[in-house]
Design a protein around this nucleic acid. Structure first.
Lengths: 150, 150
DNA sequence: CAAATAGTACAAATAAGTTGCATATATCGG
DNA sequence: CCGATATATGCAACTTATTTGTACTATTTG
């Protein structure tokens, strides 16, 4: 995941967003992080920006589909890069921002507290009762991550 | 799911909890509700109790395993009856409070906003990369429930 | 490079959840 | 049934996460 800075501007452009230092810095942190970040995490890492700016940036990125929200029972929100961005980074092929990508697994380590998006491990097929229409599936796994094993 | 009141006391006793009006009322609401409830929901339905009392009751019930926490991306917590309580109600056979029950699917309807525990629909087997140890799995499905279909 | 548009900062409000402490109540033994 | 003890409740106040309003500043586009 070695990222050149110019990519930041490209991505923001692709999503019809103005290129500002704040957005570049926030996006950069997500690109470089192997785990999900909370608003608090960003506040700590980017103290030069106002809390509100960070919150608004996160919302904007959510709306545009750059980030996705990870349900969490800790009382606050975690955010991760959307699958479309990950694909943009892996393949050179550019994916359109409204393509639908399959849901991935969110893994939270009870030791280090970090939440990872396990993109390669897809959610198994889910069966629901007749009459239920599925729009979105989120699989949250809690346990101990590779790095924290004894 | 036709419940006689005496069951409330029985359940609280089984879990080594004092029988108070507040706990009976809270438990009763969970027994009668087909969907998960938030602290706010209880506040609205049981205005005779202090907010703090309701929060503390919820925590006590969580600790004892009467309720379980349902991760939710709305920024606040939802609670549902634990599987062990459901089984106590269905079968006459009494289950011990520390038995482990398999995880079920949580369904949130994007139309009515309600979250149901689909007790009969178990979470399929999950595979993670080598070195990840699984402790707990939660599956959240968003979509349109039976009652809200056109 | 200036006008139009959108982003940011600061202050202040709201909402969810928690803590401390004094009072009230449930339970248990007699 | 009664009183002692442990526990639950209510109230006030606090913390933390997030939102809103508004004035100011920066980015984009021609």
């Amino acid at each position: 995941m070695n990222m050149k800075k110019p990519r930041l501007k490209e991505i923001l452009h692709d999503y019809q967003l103005r290129v500002t230092p704040g957005r570049c810095d926030v996006l950069n942190h997500f690109l470089r992080s192997s785990y999900a970040l909370s608003a608090k995490d960003l506040e700590n890492r980017l103290p030069q920006y106002d809390r509100v700016t960070l919150y608004r940036t996160l919302h904007t990125f959510l709306e545009k589909g750059i980030l996705h929200l990870i349900p969490h029972d800790g009382g606050f929100a975690y955010f991760g890069l959307s699958e479309s961005i990950r694909l943009q980074l892996d393949n050179t092929a550019r994916a359109s921002s409204n393509t639908h990508y399959p849901d991935h697994i969110h893994f939270t380590c009870t030791t280090c507290g970090r939440t990872e998006c396990l993109s390669d491990y897809m959610i198994p097929q889910v069966t629901l009762p007749q009459g239920y229409q599925i729009k979105d599936v989120d699989l949250l796994v809690k346990g101990i991550c590779q790095a924290c094993q004894v």
